[in-house]
Write a protein that binds this DNA or RNA. Structure first.
Lengths: 197, 197
DNA sequence: GTCCGGATCCTAGCACCGCTAGACAATCTA
DNA sequence: TAGATTGTCTAGCGGTGCTAGGATCCGGAC
């Protein structure tokens, strides 16, 4: 059935166009500028067309977020070592602020919850966990991963909100990594840990 | 001039009423529910009255945020030691989610910038810095303070967004504090650091 | 006591928002 | 070619932030 396939393909292309346009608009003017009217005009369709592809406006932002999580997971998997992963994470957040905001700051309903979209999200978390594990030193790796991720997330959001000295982003990242890499180094335990630099 | 004074007092009381109502509404139903119409109805005035006290809706949220920062600063100053401070910080964020959101997640324009409101904000940061300083071990205290604060902020926001295991908030906080308190404990330096527990 | 001027407040409205019903056009099926 | 399905649009509803312009109150001058 080639006709049906062509229709479906056209539909997919339009969906992709909507997402790409929404994403571009959000990155250039912020999510407040991504309204149904402006988005519909940008893709040269009327507003109801958007609702043929997405349940509502939040679903569009959610789809952009999911796309971004996939990108972030790939970036983190490609990173080698904890230091490199931290750098990659913060760089992604800085260079894609609107997507990052859609992922972790905007309303959270759909993203988490082990329902229909967790695979790519688990992949991102697993990448962080893999980089953290060598430094867990037998302790709770899951918790240490959450702590490390939270710290990265905090730096990303507070830096973006101009709450931290913009000139010291690099020392902050380095300090955080150093805290983790020397985590198990208590005076009583002289165990050697893998080096990161 | 008693009449002028009474007028001013009435004006101040009304301003306080607006802020308290906005805050209550935000905490009970979220900031999306704090609209000019609902807020005006709740304080039993018409919408234009709000604009006689605040430039716009964001300014109301900003005033609530400033109020919250003062509270947070007081809470942090009252805390004794790094562990206690971390607990107090996360507890405040958890028990006042809407105020915390107004402080650090919503649009950031007015809050920072060393303009007219930094004193109370600097007090909050100074309280964190004072608790961190004993563990800086001669390194850059300011950077370590930013790292610690970012980590707390990340835990607060990701926990609230249900991105972290809700059952492990305590271990996360403990782990973060442990990372800081053992920061200077490299194998080559056997210096004794103050104990926290 | 009367009147005036300024402060205060409200009604009404603008342009925009997310979202949807119902009419119309285009395309596929038979 | 006739009918059914799909796609798209126009028009509109109730809501939003915010403001102009008129009414109303109230302290001070005479």
């Amino acid at each position: 059935m080639p006709t049906q396939t062509r229709r479906e393909r056209a539909r997919d292309e339009r969906r992709t166009l909507i997402l790409r346009t929404a994403r571009d608009l959000a990155e250039s003017e912020g999510w407040d500028a991504v309204t149904t009217r402006r988005l519909a005009e940008a893709v040269d369709y009327s507003q109801p067309v958007l609702y043929g592809h997405f349940k509502n406006m939040d679903a569009i932002a959610g789809a952009v977020a999911l796309e971004g999580i996939g990108e972030l997971a790939a970036v983190l998997q490609a990173a080698d070592g904890l230091h490199e992963l931290a750098r990659a994470y913060l760089e992604y957040a800085e260079t894609h602020p609107a997507v990052y905001e859609a992922m972790f700051t905007r309303s959270t309903d759909l993203v988490f919850g082990t329902a229909d979209s967790p695979s790519v999200l688990k992949a991102a978390f697993a990448a962080i966990r893999a980089a953290v594990e060598p430094y867990a030193d037998g302790k709770d790796t899951e918790t240490l991963t959450e702590v490390f991720w939270s710290a990265l997330h905090g730096q990303a959001t507070l830096t973006r909100g101009h709450r931290l000295r913009p000139t010291h982003a690099q020392p902050r990242a380095d300090t955080l990594v150093a805290l983790i890499t020397s985590a198990g180094q208590h005076p009583l335990s002289g165990r050697k840990l893998p080096d990161t630099d």
